[in-house]
Computed example of a mutant assay.
Amino acid sequence: MTYEQFTMQTVGPAGASAPSREGDPSKDFITVGRREHDRKSFEASVSRMRQAEGNNVVVFVHGYNYSYQEAVFRLAQLKAEAGAHAVPVLFSWPSQADFRGYVADRDSTTYARDDLVQLLTMLSRSRSGGRVTVVGHSMGAWLVMEALRQLRLQGRGDVIARLQVGLASPDIDVDVFRKQVAIVGRLSPPLTVLVSNDDRALAVSSRITGGKPRLGAAKVDDPEIQKIAALNGVQIIDISTLPSNDAFNHDRFVTFAARYSTAERDRTAGGFRQAGVFLLDTTGRILSAPFNGTAQIIAGAQ
């Protein structure tokens, strides 16, 4: 596993002065510095940044068909959109960054599992008491769940107890997720899953895997999905009404992160802290839904 630290110029005010490299910081994310670390210096650097950023860390695990560079800038966008006071850490596994490389990417996530366990164990050692939030997107969500499963089987509940976990558009077979979460057990705060039943990227994934339904494209009124949530203390949030910046409706989690952050600051997101199935209406309001049928509430149609 290798370690790197990037210094970035993120979105700034119109007319801001650009650094001495290509790009306009009023519109772009620009890398203005890069430093290689060994494990010891990386851990020390993160520790210093935690003291400056409020002690919390956000680990982003990218999905299938992502280059390393794309993942770096996606994390920069997430930090800018959410406005979070946390140290952003990218866990990048060796994706083919090619739409045709699905099977190879799946093998790569398996290869990277031990390294993610090692990283989460390292970050959890901090005595500061800050959170370690882990966000797995798409195939990266499968990797996150496998890492949690491995930690649990190794008896590392102390590491898991320090984590707050979110899965965005998870590319995970629903039956596989049922097995994973049963071993991982209930998390506190609850494991959060963001779903969109019109996610075209996951529709392609389902076809590639022989028609197996993907968790990230689940319908929240599906009794089986509701059962998984109830038995395992999982909160499932339908974000299909939010705008997407890509044609595949696969990146809505970025919009969700920004709206959730705003709701938290306004103290209007209390329902997020409960386990269950939730719906997000077209204005971004959180609607807690009972387990006896919720289709009529979708998209604010109460």
Rank of each mutant, 00 (worst) to 15 (best):
S188C: 06
S188E: 15
P189V: 13
P189C: 09
P189F: 07
L191A: 12
T192R: 09
L194F: 06
V195W: 00
V195S: 00
S196A: 11
S196K: 02
S196E: 01
N197C: 02
D198S: 12
D198Q: 07
R200L: 13
A201G: 02
L202E: 03
V204L: 11
V204E: 04
V204F: 10
S205Q: 03
S205N: 04
S205E: 04
S205C: 05
S206L: 03
R207N: 13
R207V: 15
I208K: 11
I208A: 10
I208H: 11
I208L: 14
G210N: 07
G211S: 07
G211V: 10
K212N: 10
K212M: 10
P213G: 06
P213C: 04
R214V: 08
R214D: 05
G216F: 02
G216C: 03
G216W: 03
A217R: 05
A217M: 03
A218Y: 03
K219W: 04
D222K: 01
P223Q: 10
P223E: 13
E224P: 03
I225F: 07
Q226V: 13
Q226F: 10
K227I: 08
K227D: 14
K227Q: 13
I228C: 04
A230V: 10
L231Q: 15
N232D: 10
N232T: 06
G233H: 03
V234I: 15
V234L: 13
V234T: 12
I236Y: 02
D238W: 02
D238F: 03
D238T: 01
I239A: 02
I239E: 07
I239W: 03
S240V: 05
T241W: 08
L242S: 08
L242T: 09
L242M: 12
P243F: 00
S244D: 07
D246V: 07
D246F: 06
A247Q: 14
